[in-house]
């Protein structure tokens, strides 16, 4: 360790090896931090250029727009019928979150607690929708949903979004369930509680953090899910991200700035969700089910 903690009164002079190591460590650290800062600067550029453009009156071949206005938001709001899009987005998300919890939590419990013939196979089947890219199974899924008349409106969007969400709930909940001592359930039963009571009075309160975490994770993923929604949505069941895609790919008809305004609305919605999410989960959990180690 280059920085050792030393007793305050007597501070021995740095030895020659100490000094050499510190110098040797510097270029590597600079490169690493340089790369990180470069990455963040570009990221900032990407986000800020959308933001600035959405407020700019006219912006063409200059560093910054000529003037600023908020009128693009009003135009985007009307042109893209954003109110109904946002309502649809929220409806879809709430339905997906609720249903995936209802289906996923009991299954996660059974998988975490019990061993039974075929468990590994079942686990693998639940894992597959997460491992496969949405487009691969999304096209056959959309075909089936259209065949049964379920796609093209909201039920299809909800059903399609459930496919990765339910396994996600299962994977997120499993460690939360595993960390509850099964003896606590036994104790409740020995006190006379039936299975239902054990679930409602003992397990559910203990699982609230896990349920909140997976709910928020599913919410973020559903709002941001493009492919499955894109493949199954009809004109009245587009979520914000799909509507954004359509407005972008049809740009030229609409002013670039109103598309940007819509993108900002989408971004702020995601950021609000993110801020909420990070109160309950840590950043790593948002991307994959890897338990972040408690800090040493």
């Amino acid at each position: 360790m280059a920085t050792t903690t030393q007793a305050p009164p007597a501070r021995p002079p740095a030895t020659s090896t100490d000094r050499r190591r510190r110098i040797a460590a510097r270029p590597a650290a600079w490169i690493v931090w340089g790369v990180v800062i470069f990455f963040f600067l570009n990221l900032l550029g990407v986000v800020a250029s959308v933001l600035v453009s959405s407020f700019g009156q006219r912006w063409f071949d200059t560093w910054l727009p000529d003037g600023y206005t908020t009128s693009w938001y009003a135009r985007a709001w009307d042109e893209f019928a954003l109110l109904s899009v946002i309502v649809v987005t929220l409806e879809v998300s709430v339905l997906v979150v609720g249903l995936s919890l209802l289906i996923g939590v009991p299954a996660a419990y059974a998988l975490a607690r019990r061993s039974f013939p075929g468990k590994r196979l079942i686990f693998l089947v639940f894992l597959l929708p997460i491992l496969m890219p949405p487009i691969t199974y999304g096209i056959p899924l959309a075909t089936v949903l259209y065949k049964f008349g379920l796609a093209g409106h909201m039920s299809g969007v909800v059903l399609a979004n459930l496919v990765p969400s339910v396994p996600f709930v299962i994977l997120t909940m499993t460690p939360f369930i595993e960390q509850i001592d099964p003896r606590i359930e036994s104790a409740a039963r020995m006190c006379g509680a039936g299975l239902r009571t054990v679930f409602l009075r003992v397990l559910t309160p203990l699982l609230v953090p896990g349920i909140l975490a997976s709910a928020i994770l599913v919410l973020v993923r559903t709002v941001g899910m493009f492919e499955l929604t894109f493949l199954t949505a009809g004109p009245d069941s587009q979520t914000l991200v799909v509507a954004l895609y359509y407005s972008m790919s049809a740009s030229g008809i609409r002013a670039q700035q109103s598309v940007d305004a819509m993108a900002v609305i989408y971004t702020s919605m995601m950021l609000v969700l993110l801020v909420v999410a990070l109160r309950y989960v840590n950043p790593t959990q948002l991307v994959a089910r890897v338990k972040d180690e408690p800090e040493h």
């Binding site: 990221l43 550029g45 959308v50 941001g224 493009f226 954004l244 972008m248 971004t267 995601m270 993110l274």
Partner: peptide
């Protein structure tokens, strides 16, 4: 900060990249 681009998703990133 690193989670931000993941949650933004590819569509928004594309829009930003076009501008930036």
């Amino acid at each position: 900060l690193l989670v931000v681009p993941i949650t933004l998703g590819t569509v928004l990133t594309a829009q930003g990249l076009l501008n930036f």
